[in-house]
Amino acid sequence: MIDVKKEGITKEVVDQWYSEWEVLREQIHVAHNARNGEAKDLMERGIVNFLNFVVGASDIDEYDATADYEVLPINGKERIAFIQAKPGQYACYRQLDELYKETKKRCARLRLKS
């Protein structure tokens, strides 16, 4: 298991990361409703933002899809693989949104633990 870095999950860091997602999430939602084909590119940005956070919050230099991360919620790596496979699908958008929420909560629990 790849351990979390305490400085990578401070409230300020997590809040900044999550606020970036909230802006992107709204854009993705609008793109899905408009069915204008922009959702996939926006989702790919959301995935990159998520993985960059995982790397920054963990004691590693780059994301390894086979590794287990303390910062990820249950089935996190499998869910990321599902999202990466078809980022243009609405179900993947919902799954990514849930991953963001659950990871934010997990970071709060990890801060209390340490």
Rank of each mutant, 00 (worst) to 15 (best):
M1F: 15
M1R: 15
I2L: 13
I2K: 15
I2W: 10
D3H: 15
V4C: 14
K5A: 04
E7W: 07
G8L: 01
K11S: 01
K11M: 01
V14D: 04
D15C: 01
Q16I: 10
E20W: 15
E20I: 10
E22F: 07
E22W: 06
V23G: 01
E26R: 13
Q27F: 06
I28Q: 07
H29C: 06
H29R: 13
H29F: 14
H29D: 09
V30M: 08
A31V: 12
H32P: 09
A34Y: 13
R35L: 06
R35C: 03
N36G: 07
N36S: 08
N36C: 11
G37I: 10
G37L: 05
K40N: 13
K40I: 07
D41N: 14
D41R: 04
L42A: 09
M43D: 07
E44N: 14
E44A: 02
R45Y: 11
G46T: 01
V48A: 12
L51F: 09
L51A: 09
F53I: 03
V54P: 11
V55H: 06
Y63D: 00
Y63I: 00
D68F: 11
Y69M: 04
L72M: 12
P73A: 02
P73V: 03
P73F: 13
N75C: 05
N75A: 08
G76C: 09
K77L: 05
E78N: 15
E78P: 04
E78I: 03
R79V: 02
I80T: 03
A85E: 15
K86T: 12
K86A: 11
Q89D: 07
R94G: 12
L96Y: 06
L96Q: 08
D97T: 15
E98Q: 13
L99W: 03
Y100W: 12
K101A: 12
K101P: 03
E102Q: 15
T103W: 10
T103H: 07
T103D: 04
K104I: 02
C107Q: 05
C107V: 01
A108D: 11
R109P: 07
L110C: 09
S114F: 13
S114L: 05
